[in-house]
Design a protein around this nucleic acid. Structure first.
Lengths: 108, 108
DNA sequence: AATCTATGCGTTGAAAGACTAGGCTTAGGC
DNA sequence: GCCTAAGCCTAGTCTTTCAACGCATAGATT
């Protein structure tokens, strides 16, 4: 958990969240997380693509090849119904655990 | 990250924080995290003791055998100077990353 | 035409961390 | 004498993240 890293266990939640407004391609997911977080978060490609594979296998996202705005062959990822449910449940889990952490950190 | 779990990467921060007020023994660390978090967090022994070993190796804590209030042989853990520094740096990292996560989650 | 750069998809292997499932000891109560 | 709870710990497994690669191509530069 150093300078420009991720909090382990939160990557899929972030990806699902970024996919929520609509389909985008893999590379753009990482960029979007980076800019939305004001450069605080940085998703490495070696983390991103394996995560997307896992999410495909679990049926949280669907993928479709297409052409980007920059005229390149890209893979668009899109939330499934199950992915939307999963996002909600990950948000709940995260919030609950975060409350627990903050309780300990403030009152210990 | 299911029902009663931890957020990976935050365990050492929680332990260091619980040790901050003064030395306590291992078993009590887990209990303290559990009650302080209002039962939201649950540290398994299989996570706790290996974490304490790592922290010993890295010099963040010292250990000393003693007798508990309940008259049992226990191992008291105590923050070192380096452990205190480490706690601060883990808090900073966590806060920064958390801000990044919340930015993405709210604005995606 | 050839080269370079940025974009874009991916894998592999290593490392770290958390959990399951066990084992061991002993104090105090029955 | 036995049981339960407190308390310490390890071994093995699983999951996740990351560094370090490889590959292709569009557009710009030379």
């Amino acid at each position: 958990m150093a300078k420009n890293e991720m909090l382990p266990g939160t990557l899929s939640m972030l990806i699902l969240r970024v996919l929520q407004p609509g389909p985008i391609h893999g590379y753009a997911i990482a960029q979007r997380i980076h800019t939305l977080s004001r450069e605080l978060l940085q998703v490495e490609e070696g983390s991103l693509y394996p995560a997307l594979q896992r999410m495909l296998l679990k049926g949280w996202v669907k993928a479709e090849w297409g052409i980007s705005e920059t005229n390149r062959k890209v893979r668009f990822y899109k939330l499934t119904a199950e992915g939307r449910r999963r996002l909600q449940s990950e948000i709940e889990d995260f919030d609950r655990i975060l409350h627990g952490i903050q309780a300990v950190m403030s009152k210990a």
